[in-house]
Design a protein around this nucleic acid. Structure first.
Lengths: 205, 205
DNA sequence: GTTTTCGTGATACGACCGTACCACGATGGT
DNA sequence: ACCATCGTGGTACGGTCGTATCACGAAAAC
């Protein structure tokens, strides 16, 4: 047989091409021929590794979500594991804001997929669509820790606030994406809410 | 000449058909033939009143936004003009949550249009995309009034909180739309934030 | 060394979509 | 009464899109 190519790697490359071109022209506007051209391969190849367009889109979503998860994790890690709950939550929420090209693409495509999922049951069945639960648990846990450590107001409802922060971040992200609000303004709103949840306690403990 | 039909009325009927079918099958899946069938007219008629699909989509957006504005205004009015700032803000924010079919359709289509607007300059130039500024001003004004009346914490930043509430509502709306969160849960989160901004003062004044 | 299977290219097919074209009936103007 | 024109239907055209088909080179298996 020929070169015995790594299928998974090829698939990843093509999925990356899909995400790139979709980020530029919109998910609705990309066809298999566009993906092939972006990946520098022939149309047949795209068909070969993903038999159908639906499977290509599904892998594209997987690639997108995985990449974004890695990005967020890296940002959180860069903030320092010992940086305290606020810094961690802040890093997590701000990594999700579309401030650069990568997260802008993520927001655009994730929203596109979400819209499609409403009327496409194959996409709705995809587990990535319910993945935000993990983020919610993480933020809720961090807030709970902070509350136990006395860093937040006593009556704080950790889960309620976690849900609120995540939804706020998502809403702000969309506003930034459509050019309705500047990244700076969105960051300020987020900071404002974080200041409320974590009242100024200057100690690092 | 024949019946001398009212063009504006016809256009509105067809735009309504577009919104209905798009709400059912997704905006990306509707063609002119679908709109014609839904409106009970021939394909030629749709072409006659809107020369191009782009114009049809634009009028559809207009129809959608106008209808939703009327809905929100009606809800706010129903809450009572003298109901105080909190009830008004609450009515406004909750009218935007996709709890019934009408607002679910609105959320789905508005998000679809927003996504398209990112890569389509004709849509991005449409003024409806920046309309939320009006809602922001209204909420900010109401919060300011409430603060002047002593109904909210003294240090409250009215505009910052208004932006936050609107973005929160939008984010929660999207979560509900994709089935990630129940309308009840979203309402609870919204109430939680409103309780914070308007601490329990039981008097009606 | 032959054979079989994998990877790849080019191209064809059928369907659908937006748009354009052609025809005609009906009715308002004069 | 005639005619210009508005509203309407039917249908055809060009393009694109996803998918299927055919063909062939190349390397692993034996």
């Amino acid at each position: 047989m020929p070169k015995r190519v790594d299928h998974d790697m090829r698939r990843t490359e093509i999925a990356a091409a899909l995400v790139r071109v979709a980020g530029r022209r919109g998910l609705h506007a990309v066809g298999m021929r566009d993906v092939a051209a972006e990946a520098g391969v022939s149309l047949r190849l795209v068909q070969y590794y993903f038999e159908t367009k639906e499977k290509l889109l599904l892998h594209g979503l997987q690639y997108l979500v995985d990449g974004f998860g890695a990005r967020v994790a890296a940002r959180v890690r860069a903030a320092g594991a010992d940086a305290g709950p606020r810094a961690t939550v802040e890093a997590l929420l701000k990594a999700a804001l579309p401030t650069d090209e990568e997260s802008r693409t993520f927001h655009l495509l994730y929203t596109s997929y979400a819209v499609l999922a409403v009327t496409d049951e194959a996409l709705a069945a995809q587990p990535f669509m319910k993945n935000p639960d993990a983020a919610e648990d993480m933020v809720a846990d961090l807030l709970q820790q902070a509350r136990d450590a006395g860093c937040t107001p006593a009556g704080l409802d950790a889960r309620m606030e976690a849900i609120g922060l995540l939804a706020l971040s998502a809403g702000l992200g969309t506003s930034v994406l459509v050019g309705q609000r500047s990244p700076r303004s969105a960051t300020a709103v987020l900071d404002h809410q974080l200041d409320r949840i974590f009242p100024a306690a200057r100690d690092g403990a």
